[in-house]
Design a binder for these strands. Structure first.
Lengths: 131, 131
DNA sequence: CTGGATCCTGCTCGATACTG
DNA sequence: CAGTATCGAGCAGGATCCAG
């Protein structure tokens, strides 16, 4: 199993904040949850094109440990039903992320214009194209 | 030699901005340059405790390619003299970084209080202790 | 449906030696 | 002084199969 380790050489609030949002899938998960609110596991996997289960579950677990997201288990007898959403803690971080996103929007242009705009944060995401 | 590759699956302004500031040494170099203005290579190496020349030079080269920093060569005949400073481009990013830093300051407490505060950005840095 | 267990690849980071 | 060349280790990230 994957386990993130050795991030304890963080010595500065800026580094700390960056460590929460760096990583290949972290910001993408945040963006999906921010867009859709409360989302099922399979929905997240579908939105993040080309992520494997092993990597996605490790990412979610890591974000749970960091208290960035919240897990809701709705056991419907035989069919496991799990949903994730942003934590209140994470929501206090969003304004800073939107600052970053706004800056990026000025200086970054997508190489693939066919990818739709993220519905709420106003940035191009790597979401699946609409069918 | 090291060469950063494969960061071309970035599809969103937020990811783009994050990619510029993630990496083990990037934010630390930014912090040093922001604190001191224009800084010599050896000064940067001294501030970033425990960084090797190979890694530092690769980091600086990468940041040059991203237009985050500017290199000034003051060739004094036999003694090479090189200085680095933040680019104007990077300076437009600073407000967003300070948002992140401010947020981090609320939620992050250093494990080593003996490390002095960064002079300008108001965060604990991994700077060398004063002798 | 929601992941856990395994195995694997290649990048990131580092130590050391060397140079104009 | 300001790097480059080379070698190497460890971890982030990935593929695939399997299980409650």
């Amino acid at each position: 199993m994957y386990q993130k380790k050795k991030q304890e050489d963080i010595r500065c609030p800026l580094e700390y904040a960056i460590s929460l949002i760096s990583g290949k899938w972290n910001s993408r998960v945040l963006c999906v949850l921010h867009t859709y609110g409360t989302v099922r596991y399979s929905k997240i996997r579908d939105e993040l094109v080309s992520v494997s289960d092993a990597v996605l579950s490790a990412t979610l677990k890591e974000m749970l440990n960091k208290n960035l997201i919240v897990k809701h288990v709705l056991s419907t007898e035989l069919t496991p039903h799990v949903e994730y959403s942003l934590s209140d803690y994470c929501k206090t971080l969003l304004p800073a992320l939107q600052e970053l996103c706004k800056w990026g929007g000025v200086h970054f242009t997508s190489h693939d214009e066919s990818i739709p705009l993220c519905k709420r944060c106003g940035c191009n995401t790597n979401m699946k194209k609409e069918p």
